[in-house]
Amino acid sequence: MELLYGHPKSLVSIQSKYCPGCGHGVIHRLITEVIDEMGLQERSIITNPVGCSIWAEYYFDFDSVQPAHGRTPAAATGIKRNLKDHLVICYQGDGDLAAIGTAEIIHAANRGEKFTTIFVNNAIYGMTGGQMAPTTLVGQYATTSPRGRDPGEAGMGYPIKVCELLSSLGGTRYLARGAVNNPVNIKKTKKMIRTAFEAQMRGEGFTMVEILSQCPTNWKLSPPESIDWLEKNMIPFYPLGEIKNTLSTAAAPAGAGN
């Protein structure tokens, strides 16, 4: 009898520390499914960032490196440059990537570092208990924006669209945004991850998949409510799809060749 669906080989079979309804678990599963499909378990290295996913080494059944907060792309650079034929995954949250590590991600992307960044955007700081993230929406509540994010009077800045920000950099080849709030989006996100990993193994340049993800605990919502909230609030601001694709496999843009 053929097994059609099971637990990914690269994903350790233990109960995770993630809260009910959290998107990290789904994202971990997507990453490991793709790794298994590509047969890369013994050639994969993940950098697990400071944030809720700091325990990634418990969950991923392959090598890992845990760098300083925000320095994940720098460490991933040091790893990938020395292990060119390995799959290097730079797993980052919105605080790690878009706040404390802004310099590192911009320059790694600009150098065209050949690892793949999985950018988990849940618009809040999870591990430290619900503080405002660079991607927190205008008006969204956080412990450090108790009356809602206010870019005006309070000078809290605007939510950063990371894919769009990086898209102007010469070193970036594939920037896509997915979400894990429903099966359709999850399937599309998996395809993006596969595209990015394949491009990395071909050595094409910087690839990143931004994934909109739920954080019911810090959004103060139930898991079903958080799925709905992501759909109604995040997706309109952070549009899903390929923001940039200049990979060798990319479909010719409409009108090309005319």
Partner: peptide, 26 residues
Amino acid sequence: RIFIQAESEVSAINMVYGAAATGVRA
């Protein structure tokens, strides 16, 4: 061999961290 002019000293030492983790002299 590998040479990178990093964007900062902070980044340079963390590139060393990544490289050293792979077992090379950095």
